[in-house]
């Protein structure tokens, strides 16, 4: 499970990282990375993002 982050919208504020209940997201200075093994696709980061830069990846 994972999320898609639109890099052109992201301002690397870390709001998504702060909200993620399972510590799946990490902000590496200007790049948010999702640990797919930890992500539970709960969508909290999608709602937390002030820039609307995050979407849940379509489940296949």
């Amino acid at each position: 499970m994972a999320v898609d982050i639109t890099k052109s919208k992201c301002v690397y504020c870390g709001g998504c990282v702060a909200a993620c209940p399972v510590l799946a997201l990490t902000l590496f200075e200007t790049r948010v990375v999702c640990d797919e093994a930890k992500c539970i696709s709960c969508g909290t980061c999608v709602r937390a993002c002030p820039m609307q830069a995050i979407k849940l990846k379509n489940k296949k």
Binding site: G15, A19, T44, R47, A48, P50
Partner: peptide, 11 residues
Amino acid sequence: VAGLYDTDTCF
């Protein structure tokens, strides 16, 4: 953890 209820999202 920053639960959304107690967080303000700012621009």
